[in-house]
Amino acid sequence: MDDKQPMVFEDLPIGEEFADKYVLTPDLARDYAEGIADANPWYLEHSPFGGPVANPILIVAQHARLFKTKYITAGNVHIRHETQFLNPARIGKVIKVYGKLVEKYLKRGREYLVMECRSVDEDGIEICRDRRTIITHYAKRPE
């Protein structure tokens, strides 16, 4: 049974942690390459690291899944990310994603959430660290 609840800004606890994982498959890499029209062979065939590696932003984009592991959400708008790339993510690996809600605030009628995230592969190699800010619902709160 799906126990997810709608995400309510006021009820979100600072410090709440999230976790997820996925397999970095060749199909995922190909789908992303087509989506952003970047068919760099490093992502699909071979790279200087030996074998294909993920587009770094594909890994960053997967951090968006974290709120959905616990909450029903729709209409979030990503407005900022501060990301450090540490190692390439190798196609075929399981990627573990971790996040923590570190800040929330209201600004000009909108709800802002800040999550600190990291992606680590199945061998414990840290891929990236990311601090992402979203607006929960783009439509402004009523005055």
Binding site: N40, V77, H78, R80, F85, P88
Partner: peptide, 19 residues
């Protein structure tokens, strides 16, 4: 940035981006 800096971008790059 990958085209400009190659593998160095993937293993030592950092960005701060606002939409």
């Amino acid at each position: 940035l990958t085209k400009a800096f190659g593998i160095d971008w993937m293993r030592s790059g950092s960005i701060d981006v606002k939409f």
